[in-house]
Design a protein around this nucleic acid. Structure first.
Lengths: 223, 223
DNA sequence: CCGCTGTCAAGAGCAGTGCTCTCGGTTTTG
DNA sequence: CAAAACCGAGAGCACTGCTCTTGACAGCGG
């Protein structure tokens, strides 16, 4: 199968992309709640039913946008990583880059880190792209001298942590893995709280607090 | 003005409550996305337009449910606090109680800690009840010997932290306040990640990890 | 070159939604 | 007792996601 086949296939691929682009545009304006297939079709000069040749349902379109968003924020995190230099600086850069993307695309962020949209959709298609930001953080820790962190780890968590080290192929004790997961949680918890207005009464411009959290969590994981 | 006035007012108050109860019931089944005014009215044996005498819009109904949910999770946190005994145990109990409520009412939790529903609704009505869980945690730290935590704090964050200590009426350095905010973020970040399926590939039954986080964050704030 | 087959956009239509307005009837109030 | 306020019911508007059918066109084998 060559890269470009019949005119039909090319047209189909292009239109699929155009639909997603227009949907993303509307998503940024009215949010996931207000995204309307008919409005997307209208803007593209076609009729709503025609759109169903490309996406079987509104939820499927949203699911595709979700995967794209995961990849976009993951790429933002990877791009922010200088790739070399002081691990602490790399860690901070990834935190910054992730937050910056989220602030630039709040509705897309809400799509992936807010409430799950339908009954329950697509855990499988999203699990790989969803891990990209976390992997970027993990990558900083590999080939790096980690300060030893100690602490007891309950058996269940220890088992989960050891399974994770195998999957990730890193050398780190269970406590370090647990702290890494906490840092990951902290990163997105802070971004979500910031974007969703939870910091309003306390640290409203959350920039300083976010930078502080990034530093403290770097120390916390032993960096 | 007496507590119970005319029959009309009593009927109105009761019906308002019945509408919210039925809405909450449906919320638990179909989520905020699927909540329908007409379905609520249908279930209550009335016509949809009549419902608008009690709630001017669907979003206003949701906003009321949001406030109720904040109070419910806040009360769950306060109830979980034994109120006396070892501060560390109180801290852990509050974490557990908060998570338990969230797991028992996932859709209501998503309503308050997921993506904001409309354009942007009600930051003012919700700011006080939204703080109840955080206040329960803060309450544990008052009248308690805190292990000193040190670390530099940037001027902007320091100012915000000092303003917070005044509002909360606690005696704690800026670094402690910052760590408290991080613990608060960690608590809801972990609950959200758990409920929204973000832990699927890593610590899927998140119980052990959550308990671990609670302990580590207790130490982190100096408890 | 013809004709078959699969794909396509379009249109009509269904069931459902949030919301508005008007219309009688009841309750409260002055 | 009459005026005013309030209430539920119903019709209706504009919109949604989604389905089904129809007619046209592209790409292919013969």
């Amino acid at each position: 199968m060559t890269a470009t086949r019949t005119a039909r296939e090319r047209a189909r691929a292009e239109l699929t992309q155009e639909i997603k682009d227009e949907a993303r545009r509307q998503l940024a304006e009215v949010g996931a709640h207000g995204l309307s297939l008919r409005a997307v079709a209208r803007e593209l000069g076609m009729v709503s039913s025609a759109l169903y040749r490309y996406f079987p349902s509104r939820d499927r379109l949203l699911t595709d946008l979700i995967v794209d968003a995961y990849n976009a924020i993951g790429e933002a995190a990877e791009q922010a990583d200088p790739g070399e230099g002081a691990p602490r600086e790399r860690w901070l850069a990834i935190w910054r880059g992730t937050r910056d993307w989220a602030r630039a695309h709040p509705h897309e962020y809400a799509l992936i880190y807010g409430s799950p949209i339908p009954g329950y959709a697509a855990p499988q298609d999203t699990v790989v792209p969803a891990a990209r930001v976390a992997l970027a953080l993990v990558k900083v820790l590999t080939h790096t001298e980690l300060r030893d962190v100690d602490g007891e780890v309950a058996p269940e968590l220890r088992a989960q942590a050891e399974a994770l080290t195998k999957v990730l192929g890193i050398v780190a004790g269970p406590e370090t893995v647990a702290r890494l997961l906490m840092a990951w949680t902290q990163l997105f918890g802070a971004i979500s709280f910031d974007l969703f207005g939870q910091y309003v009464g306390s640290v409203d411009p959350a920039d300083a607090f976010f930078a502080h959290s990034a530093r403290r969590m770097a120390e916390f994981v032993g960096l």
